[in-house]
Design a protein around this nucleic acid. Structure first.
Lengths: 205, 205
DNA sequence: TTGAAAAACGACACTGATGTCGTTTATAAT
DNA sequence: ATTATAAACGACATCAGTGTCGTTTTTCAA
């Protein structure tokens, strides 16, 4: 169907496959998904899929990076809003994501990360660590900026607040993944999180 | 080796198998562990293992309940300490658990819970939900008690604080499971958690 | 001491998924 | 048109793990 094909063609095809894979991972999670599933979903042969991805693990890694890339950098552009408003909006965005966890890669992500238990594997994917540290960084910088403008008076080092914030979100995500958003009461927990942030970031506004 | 055997014998044997299983799950996690592994670890035949447990999922459920049962109820006995002291100790205990996550079932637990994505399966194990709610309950009661004695002046409903606390611990656990305790800086995050709790529980002491 | 009961054994058939590879097919360049 | 190229196909060999079941072994009770 296609020989000596343009680079754009190959990229397009790959993207196509990644989209199919995404759909599979959303519905089946990482552990229960198979290459077979992706082939079926993409309507493509065994050989075709394997021409693009060596195995499920690599496929997921590529998807992860692809998705991250799509992510708008929420914190970098400082708009006309106050830092606290921006913060609130981000938290709300996380809430929506968690409440709709069924239509999201979050669960598959957790499964994937947990499946890399092997230190061996950990090291073959430095991106995993980078990813976490990048997020810590973005948040840290954001808090530092808010501090410079005098809006925040952090009671703890910004980096600590950043890490802590990530933990809360991840935990709520994990619990919601297997209990559902009603059982974990996502929205009230988000209020608790905002309360905590307020306390940590000092007298806000 | 054993026919028409006493109930104690069977219980003992079962416990033995559960211990072997525990070792397996700690080293391999849930997803990568197999019945085969458990047989090998326990030095027992296929038939023997299957006589006690139908499959890996059931085996894990039994292990989970067995372990929970061993757990001392940390919060129920109110000793001579203040509630805040008790709280601090519990948080520290969680810290140790997370820092030693490699020798713990925590990771396997997460994997197991995530593997039950299926609503079908969820319902066949009501214990999973119960377990979470039980923990919420224990903490809520504890906070309520501290409030009655006048030690806490909660700024949020105790139940909300309880749920939030669980999220933080679970999130830190998850992140530490794949990044390691150094990368996530468990100890400083625990300080941040204590800071939050202090703020939520009102002027403490 | 003997025999019925059942615990433990392990061979086996089966399943579902993986990764490979020789073949077919489409297309871009000549 | 023709041809070289490589994308896509799908049959296949392989593998690891599962759950079953007929057989063997052990021990308790008569």
């Amino acid at each position: 169907m296609a020989p000596k094909v343009s680079d754009e063609y190959k990229t397009k095809k790959k993207t196509e496959l990644l989209h199919a894979a995404k759909r599979v991972f959303i519905t089946k999670g990482y552990t229960r998904a198979t290459m077979q599933d992706v082939m079926d979903e993409a309507g493509v042969s065994r050989g075709a899929l394997y021409a693009y991805f060596d195995n499920l693990e690599h496929l997921y890694m590529e998807l992860l990076q692809f998705e991250d890339q799509q992510d708008v950098q929420f914190f970098t552009p400082i708009t006309g809003e106050t830092s606290w408003e921006q913060m609130t909006k981000w938290v709300y965005k996380q809430q929506v994501e968690i409440e709709n966890i069924e239509q999201t890669l979050s669960q598959a992500n957790s499964e994937f990360f947990l499946s890399l238990k092997d230190q061996q594997k950990q090291q073959s994917y430095p991106y995993i660590t980078t990813r976490y540290e990048k997020m810590v960084d973005v948040l840290t910088v954001f808090f530092a900026h808010g501090t410079e403008t005098g809006e925040f008076k952090p009671q703890l080092p910004p980096e600590v607040i950043a890490r802590y914030l990530i933990s809360v979100i991840d935990g709520l995500m994990l619990d919601t993944a297997h209990l559902g958003a009603e059982k974990t009461k996502v929205s009230v927990q988000m209020e608790a999180l905002l309360f905590s942030l307020r306390a940590m970031l000092g007298p806000v506004q």
